[in-house]
Design a protein around this nucleic acid. Structure first.
Lengths: 226, 226
DNA sequence: GCCTATTTATGAGCGTACTCATTTTTATGA
DNA sequence: TCATAAAAATGAGTACGCTCATAAATAGGC
């Protein structure tokens, strides 16, 4: 019973009228979704600064003040984009059976490429928000926790993939640093991507391919027993 | 004569009253300095969000509107911090003769350590601004150019140091990628630094030392002839 | 169904970053 | 020295993100 308090979406009891408290929760859930959908569409179209909270609430069909009952700030709202993105990425990888036996560089290329494709329609928005999502924010913000969780989730995801490569002797055992390195590498790639004026961001993709192979190669040759 | 238009501070003609147009330019220069000084002190004390443009202009002894004749936005104003920092770093390195013959990891450690010391009093401010300083901003902003210049200046500085290490066979020839890697590495270090709760940021310094030696080691062993 | 407590929605109001028409200061040429 | 043009300073005004007192909606007990 007490376990329930750890569940994000309390299970509805089937008894009582209209599932009891369920109606309220359902509405809340729906409103939140409406806000997120409206915001993302506007962000995609006009970027972060180009979108006003008035526009968002108008498009979501709620009062201006209501928006702030759901998201503490406009920035917090923007950061939910990355929760969706990460969850989507992990789900997608889980379903890409073909990838699971591929060599490490190929795997990482596919994963990062997928992330770039996901953010592609939101370029301006990403430029404004991506790096903020990585910085620590005021301790009181609930998003401080949430973004921390998100980072850990991503790191665990990468760690698992690297651990598998270690087992297969594709790379020497590099431990926890590996996942941080990949995260950092991704930051670098996104920076390059943002500055990249080439058609279809081809230059970034080339850099991605080149540097992944390079890094794996160096690791293989150099070993890690220093 | 026509060369003058390329000079940032037109040379004063000694004739005419009060050096002619000089008085105006001098005042402008002074006002800009006053604003910068006031802003940095307030940023250090209250962070970026905690400082209002009203406070800045009040402390600088000017009207609110005047501030925006000198800096397009509060953020642009904040970014001038990094110009000062980079210039200071390069000047400092030039004067540190002792370092010029040190091994590469030691050199890089000293440089990055110096950067961390420079930003230390501004932690909150840095958290809010550092990564924005790396992102491309709207093409129309004059700071777009200035921040681009600043990045190139830093990259050239690092490139020179790496080229020297290549000559001494400390590392294999890694070309232009090296400087990017160092820049990226610095981003990672700053991220760690911002999250680091340890006394005097010792953990970050340890990480810095460890990873620099590691990277150099791997490079030496692995070579680059793939 | 009805009363009460709790949750959710509302929009006028606040302080902010920033703009712009106007005023003040400075440079120039006669 | 004065008249005129150019540059710089000014601060009331604007749109924004966000708050908060109040109103509406919902849940639970009788």
């Amino acid at each position: 019973m007490s376990v329930l308090i750890f569940m994000k979406q309390p299970a509805n009891e089937k008894k009582g009228k209209a599932a009891s408290k369920g109606k309220r929760n359902l509405n809340k859930e729906r409103t939140k979704e409406k806000i997120l959908a409206a915001a993302l569409e506007l962000f995609r179209e006009h970027g972060l600064e180009g979108t006003t909270t008035k526009q968002i609430s108008r498009k979501a069909g709620i009062a201006e003040g209501t928006l702030f009952n759901y998201f503490k700030t406009k920035e917090d709202l923007a950061l939910f984009f990355f929760q969706k993105e990460t969850n989507d990425l992990i789900r997608w990888y889980g379903q890409s059976a073909r990838l699971h036996d591929a060599p490490l560089p190929e795997k990482l290329f596919a994963i990062i490429h997928r992330q770039l494709e996901y953010i592609a329609p939101y370029e301006e928005f990403i430029g404004a928000v991506f790096f903020r999502s990585l910085q620590p924010r005021s301790k009181l913000s609930p998003l401080s926790l949430e973004s921390q969780e998100l980072r850990l989730k991503y790191l665990r995801f990468v760690s698992d993939i690297l651990a598998q490569a270690e087992e297969k002797k594709e790379i020497p055992p590099i431990g926890e640093l590996g996942a941080y390195a990949v995260g950092l590498f991704y930051m670098g790639i996104v920076t390059h991507w943002l500055h990249d004026p080439s058609e279809g961001k081809q230059k970034t993709l080339a850099l991605l391919d080149r540097s992944l192979n390079l890094a794996t190669n160096v690791l293989k040759k150099g070993g890690w027993d220093w």
